[in-house]
Design a protein around this nucleic acid. Structure first.
Lengths: 133, 133
DNA sequence: CTAAGTGCAAAATGTTTGCATACTT
DNA sequence: AAGTATGCAAACATTTTGCACTTAG
């Protein structure tokens, strides 16, 4: 398994993700935060890190830019899903026991293996639904 | 409630969606199919149709372009979810009883109202997972 | 007549690529 | 030395906007 070279830029990028666990970061944000690293390098490094499984790539509904999240700490993230409010755009992390039942159902009935880390459930959060009334 | 004017272009676009129920169509595809309607008009019409609730907008994982789907026929779509294979990219429609339990759980515990029509579950489909072995 | 919609071209994003140069191993 | 990674600028792709012109009501 070829690992590629270890460069200053790549380390800076990885380090930024380690410092922001659980957060969803865009290429743009990285470029700004690490203002010594070029756009092209950021995109290339992100691709590589996703390939290697160190990061996850998300394309959030409504947004135009992809964002990335550090995926190092699997252990404490099990059975944890993302829900996002389509109105205010906020992203929440929730534990859902019912979702594991969905995963089981999909696997049995469709042979489909759900990837909880990639899935985002959309809807309206409590605050926004109260605001609407 | 202001409804806006009824124009030839808008009707052509809507008609295209009616002729392709259940399909996910990009702005690009519309421009090509309706080659008398300008890009700008397509985008503006799509925005308006989404506002009015006639279309749904999706941003599929991995893809770059947003796509739209006719949302006229709610009735026969209840309890119907989308699952998408992150490997081959295919999109499937499934009925899921367990998902309605998730919706209930989220509403009770988080006050979050799940929008099944916006949510896409990601994972690996049967064929791709067999191919991998 | 007035408000709203259209087309075109230009701009604004977000992402990828070609190529010469610099860094890792 | 050989193979990668980087930076820059240019190319792309998608979506948005400004503005003059047309059309619906």
């Amino acid at each position: 398994m070829k690992e590629g070279y270890k460069t200053k830029q790549r380390e800076e990028i990885l380090s930024f993700f380690r410092q922001h666990p659980g957060q969803h970061i865009t290429a743009q944000e990285l470029c700004t935060a690490l203002n010594g690293v070029s756009k092209a390098t950021v995109y290339r490094a992100l691709d590589r890190l996703v390939q290697e499984g160190l990061l996850r790539r998300y394309t959030l509904e409504g947004g135009q830019a992809a964002c990335y999240q550090f995926s190092g700490s699997h252990s404490h993230c099990q059975e944890h899903y993302h829900i996002r409010c389509t109105q205010c755009g906020r992203l929440f992390h929730v534990q859902s026991f019912a979702m594991s039942r969905v995963a089981g159902e999909l696997k049995e009935q469709e042979g489909f293996i759900l990837d909880s880390s990639m899935t985002v459930l959309y809807g309206i959060c409590r605050e926004c639904s109260q605001k609407d009334k």
